[in-house]
Design a protein around this nucleic acid. Structure first.
Lengths: 192, 192
DNA sequence: ACCTGAACACCGTTCAAGT
DNA sequence: ACCTGAACACCGTTCAAGT
């Protein structure tokens, strides 16, 4: 019996993430998941008390992965502020395109776990550090970095939503993003 | 027999919109809807071939209403560009807070009807006209108005998503919005 | 044209029972 | 501690039959 090792939780999450990517969160069925993984339909209950708990765990794992990809992109883009900012935006958009349904789930208004908000904060801490760097270099105006970063972050998230909803073609995304970043920097310089 | 008047479709949509507002699109059940409305569970099928068709119709009605509210807000804000822009943003945010689940549904990545995209275009035509006014008055830089408006619109939509997902408190929304608009205008003046 | 009601296959959730 | 399998109430969808 292969799942008496305490890894059923992990196996379920992996299978669930695949289903969400391929068919969306609405199509995710606990019973089908249990079948795919080769376990009885009651087994997932030990690890996820109900369907929403599994979705919450998926969203949390999504934030962890998104945070890691953002950090990797920023770290790989050298020392200068602007290339790092562009790399972060690019990584975000890449995530949004590869995992549109997961991103939708991450920002869905149905969560209960407070741990999710902290997972999101952890993921976006990279962006906050980036704003701090921009302020230290005088490229961004002084003030609450969270407040300043929120404007740009909202734009990026909105762009992702528009593409996810089919209101914007994926091909239009790079232009929108560079427009948004250019405008963000322009507006900052005008105020600094 | 009250529903032989051809209005079952309308009655279903109204009841469905109430359910979505109160409990979210995921909780919407065709059978429960039919019960509430006093009709057999097979009856909705005449008007909506399946559940997704009902959701699509709800989203389309949502765009129509959003468009009307945007237009009313802009029309009621006088002749000047900036107050009109602020009124539009305010109306959008009001819609996002009153009908968070509906907005989520409207931008969900699960639609099939091409008519939905045109309904969205219709709703956002108000914003496009607003950009044209800003360009005519020299407050916004020249260029493709759709491209220019997209940046601001993405920001507003992103802010709505963040609030809907619980990542941003509703109280923080007005400040974020005025920041976004101020920055948008600042960036435009710098380029004009 | 529009609605009813039985039928089918599928769910999420609960819970006693097994190992 | 972890999983099984029966049970319950609920779905969406289909379709012959009624008016």
């Amino acid at each position: 019996v292969p799942y008496h090792h305490g890894n059923l939780r992990t196996v379920l999450l992996e299978a669930a993430e695949r289903t969400v990517r391929e068919r969306g969160a609405g199509e995710l069925s606990l019973r089908e998941l249990a079948r795919d993984v080769g376990v009885s339909h009651g087994a997932p209950r030990r690890h996820f008390p109900d369907r929403q708990a599994l979705l919450d765990a998926l969203a949390e794992a999504g934030f962890d992965r998104l945070g890691a990809e953002l950090r990797a992109a920023v770290d790989g883009a050298g020392e200068e502020f602007e290339p790092r900012l562009e790399a972060a935006a690019g990584a975000y958009v890449r995530f949004a395109m590869d995992d549109a349904a997961l991103l939708e789930l991450m920002f869905a208004g149905k969560h209960r776990e407070a741990t999710l908000a902290t997972a999101a904060d952890r993921a976006f801490s990279v962006l906050l550090e980036l704003i701090l760097q921009g302020q230290a270099e005088g490229v961004l105006e002084p003030g609450d970095p969270e407040r300043i970063g929120l404007v740009l972050f909202s734009t990026i998230q909105g762009a992702a939503t528009l593409v996810g909803g089919g209101m914007l073609l994926p091909e239009q995304l790079p232009q929108l993003l560079s427009d948004a970043i250019a405008r963000f920097l322009r507006g900052s310089r005008a105020a600094a």
